[in-house]
Design a protein around this nucleic acid. Structure first.
Lengths: 193, 193
DNA sequence: TCGGTTGTGTACCGGTCATTCCAGTATATA
DNA sequence: TATATACTGGAATGACCGGTACACAACCGA
C-alpha cells in the first residue's frame, strides 16, 4: 500500500500549533510551518490540503490536548466539590509560569476570534461550542461546589466565573499578574459569592 | 508653504480605523486602506510613513474617540454614584446594537493584543496603559457607587467588574447575548456584591 | 522481483505584499 | 508673478505569499 509516512502526525500538529498560537493565523507563513514541523511544503499540502487545513487540525488538537484535559474533572458525571477550585488554581499556575504557551499567548481560540478568522462561519461555530462547553463545565463545578445556591445566584456565579476566565485569557499576554488576579477573583466568587 | 492637503485627517483615520478594527492589522492590505480612506498610496505613505504608522494613528484615535468619551464620567474629579452603572448600560447597549463596530468587532486593542502585534513592545505599552486607565476608571466608579466597601471588597469588586468588561469585549464578536450577560453580571457585582 | 501506491523534495507558478520613486500639480509666501 | 514647498497619481520595485506540478524514492502486496 505504498510508502509509510516518516512523521508522527500528532507531533507535527503540535509543532504547528505553537506557531499559530504564537503569531496567529494571518501572520504565520507556510515557510514558518515548514521550519516548525520539519515537513516540506509538499508534505504539508499532501496531508492537510492547505494552510487552513493544518490550522483546523491545530484547532482540533488544541481542544483535545489543551482544553479538554484541564476541563475533564468538570465534565465527568460526578464532579467533586473542589474540582472547580482545582481547575482555577491549575489555570492560574499555568498563567504565572512564563514557560507555558498559555501565559505567553493566551487562548488560541479567543485570539482567532479577534482576528479576521473571527468573521468566518466555520470557526465561529467551533468557538461557540468551545464557549458553551466551558460554560457548562463551570456550571457543573459551581453546582458541585455550591449546591445551596438558588437558580439565579447559580447563574450569576457561573457567568461571573466564566467571564473572569475569558478575561484572564484575553489579558495574560500583556500582564500575567493581572490575569492571575482575575482568576483570584473567580476563586473568590466561587467560594464566597 | 506649499499645497494644502485635500483631506481631513480625522476622517481618514476614522475610515482606516473601521478596516483595521474589522480585519485586524495583518489581514488589512494597503489597497484596502486606499479604498476605505479614498487616499492614494503615496498620500498614505507621505502622511503616515507606513501601514504601521497609520495603524498607530488609528490606535490613538480609538483611545480618543471611542474609549475616552465613554469613560469620561468615570475619570472626572467628582464621579456620580450612578456613573459606573451608566457606563455599563451604555456599553451593553452598544454591544447589543449590531450596527456598532463594538458589537461586531469587540475591542480593537484586545484584538491586537491577541495578534502578532501583541508581542511588540510599543503596542504592549499602549495596551498596558489602556488597561490601567480602564481599571482606574472602574475603581473610581466603584468608590462612588459603593463607598461603604472596605479595601479588600473594593479591590475584588473592581477586578471582577473590569474582568467582566474584558470578557464581554472578547466574546461579543461571537455572541452578543453572552457579552450582554457578562455586563449584566458586572452590574450585579457593582450594585449588590 | 515487480507493479501499484503513497510520501517527499525541487522547482516553479501567478498574484499580492508593503514600499519607493518620480513626475507633475496645487498653493502659500515673497 | 516667481519660487519654494507640500501634496498627489501612477507606475514600478523586489520580496514573499499560498499553492501546484512533477519526478523520484520508499514501501506494500503479490
Amino acid at each position: 500500500m505504498g510508502r509509510s509516512r516518516l512523521f508522527d502526525e500528532a507531533d507535527v500538529v503540535r509543532s504547528a500549533r505553537q506557531v499559530f498560537w504564537d503569531r496567529g493565523y494571518e501572520a504565520t507563513a507556510v515557510p514558518d510551518l515548514e521550519a516548525a514541523t520539519g515537513l516540506n511544503r509538499s508534505s504539508i499540502y499532501h496531508h492537510f490540503d492547505s494552510k487552513r487545513g493544518l490550522f483546523d487540525a491545530v484547532v482540533d488538537s488544541y481542544l483535545d490536548d489543551v482544553v479538554r484535559p484541564r476541563l475533564a474533572p468538570l465534565m465527568s458525571p460526578r464532579v467533586e466539590p473542589g474540582a472547580l477550585e482545582g481547575y482555577l488554581l491549575g489555570l492560574q499556575r499555568a498563567m504565572l509560569d512564563e514557560s507555558t504557551a498559555l501565559s505567553t499567548n493566551g487562548c488560541l481560540l479567543l485570539n482567532a476570534n479577534g482576528s479576521a478568522l473571527g468573521h468566518e462561519a466555520a470557526l465561529q461555530t467551533v468557538i461557540s461550542r468551545y464557549c458553551a462547553d466551558l460554560r457548562a463545565a463551570i456550571a457543573s463545578g459551581v453546582t458541585a461546589a455550591r449546591p445551596e445556591l438558588d437558580s439565579a445566584a447559580h447563574e450569576t456565579t457561573v457567568t461571573t466565573c466564566t467571564g473572569l476566565i475569558f478575561a484572564a485569557m484575553a489579558i495574560v499576554r500583556n500582564d500575567r499578574l493581572a490575569a492571575a488576579g482575575m482568576i483570584d477573583a473567580a476563586l473568590g466568587v466561587v467560594s464566597r459569592g
